[in-house]
Write a protein that binds this DNA or RNA. Structure first.
Lengths: 249, 249
DNA sequence: AAACAATTTGCAATATATTGCAATATTTGA
DNA sequence: TCAAATATTGCAATATATTGCAAATTGTTT
């Protein structure tokens, strides 16, 4: 019997019974429970069901297509994400900005980390579904359909209510004198609100973005605590930021 | 035997059995498994089937993606959704509750309708991505991972800022004297906030839920404007609501 | 805390895929 | 038609995937 046949059987039974159990499937399919478990795991990765202890249940309807949107071409950002992971500890309150870099961090987060995450990004909230111990506080506001983040005064007021340990800010341009800037007015305004309530601000940026500026101001560069780049961070480009007291890694 | 003949045989068997296996085809066609494998590979490149380890399966098999899954218990809710669609007109401000019924409505919405939607449901906001002319205002708050809606005082305050034309409320229990009730405290509290700011309240409910009650109070029954059911609505069960001045359809 | 059930991990046995190659069949072009 | 080029086929060696088992770990219940 083909693996894909088993998949069909599992999904069918799930549709009719609203649940499946390892023991039962093992009998029906005439394979070991281990194999059934692996099948379920694979189906869960495809978002076709939700794996639970002892079996599986139908996947809640929802925005699971966000997971597919993570491009695979971006090793640089994954490098950045891995470095940034080191800053996150249990019991912190962390603000996640929208954008690909914070998304990759969320994706790479250990499944059992205990955090309070405040964000305005649908994809990030969506990915954090599986992290049992992560409490997600989502900022309301007007939904930008292109980037799937909320913006507007409601969003900003929402952030104003918190005091976060860390703010993870996605790709912005960073310039020694011109400060941190972004390409979109509304989103830059929201970023302002984020940095205003965060003790530590970690900017995630590829080296190309260093020394550049865009149209909309977020905050002065020296408000940043750390800049995480995809390089080692000891190059000359970085020295100017280091001299400002910013950690560059 | 010509290669094209083999192709036909393979596709035929695939059509009847929903699967083919290398060993079996090798026997039938009297060629080596290698050849069958190469045939399948070629057919797969033409998109006529999906090659899998040990054989092949039809290209887009059984109930897979989401839209197909409006299947088992949801025909009733789809009926409700279709009826409710009639209430929505261009330029209205509409509150969408969480739950499957409002989700189905959102899914069935004409792509070019012009609405302002206020909601606390991720799946609904997500589905409305494709509707260019629908502005989505998303209520912030604490994210419930089970149902993917936000709850809490932030969520309630968010709704309090609006005056909606219509509130589409998902499955609740409705009882003539005990009022509208829900199974979850937090979500019921949010529903309260929704109904408080809506001119018209449309409850979406299967007839089984009529005359029943659950643990958490939402609002008095006579605050409802309309009850949309999966039946014709002229049965005796409905009379009591009609007498209260509620439209039952 | 003990007892039990489920999961994870590493491993070995087996099944299937891939690749390169040689033998045969088929097509092409003069 | 014939010879050369091309495609197809089967085979063998090697690589990869799948499966079931067992030990170690984690989660749940009593």
């Amino acid at each position: 019997m083909l693996k894909e046949e088993r998949f069909q059987v599992i999904l069918n039974q799930l549709n009719t019974d609203q649940k499946v159990q390892l023991a039962g499937l093992s009998n029906i399919l005439q394979v070991s429970e281990d194999t059934v478990r692996r099948d379920i795991k694979e189906l869960a990765e495809q978002g076709l069901l939700k794996s639970v202890r002892g079996g599986a249940i139908p996947h809640s309807p929802g925005p699971h297509h966000f997971k597919d949107r993570i491009g695979y071409g971006n090793e640089k950002k994954q490098i950045i994400a891995n470095k940034a992971l080191g800053f996150l500890k249990d019991d912190q309150v962390v603000i996640f900005d929208g954008g690909t870099s914070p998304l990759l961090i969320a994706q790479s987060l250990p499944k059992d980390i205990r955090l309070t995450v405040v964000t305005n990004s649908f994809p990030i909230a969506s990915i954090l579904e599986e992290h049992e111990k992560v409490e997600v506080l989502f900022a309301g506001g007007r939904l930008m359909k292109k980037s799937f983040v909320t913006v507007g005064s409601d969003t900003m007021h929402f952030f104003a209510k918190f005091r976060a340990d860390i703010c993870l800010m996605g790709i912005c341009s960073i310039h020694p004198e011109l400060g941190v800037t972004g390409p979109d007015y509304e989103e830059s305004e929201v970023k302002k609100a984020m940095v205003d309530v965060s003790k530590e601000i970690i900017a995630l940026s590829t080296v190309e973005k260093l020394g550049t500026a865009e149209g909309f101001y977020v905050c002065p560069t020296d408000q940043l605590t750390t800049i995480v780049t995809d390089q080692t961070g000891d190059s000359d480009d970085c020295k100017v930021y280091r001299d400002m007291g910013i950690h560059v890694i």
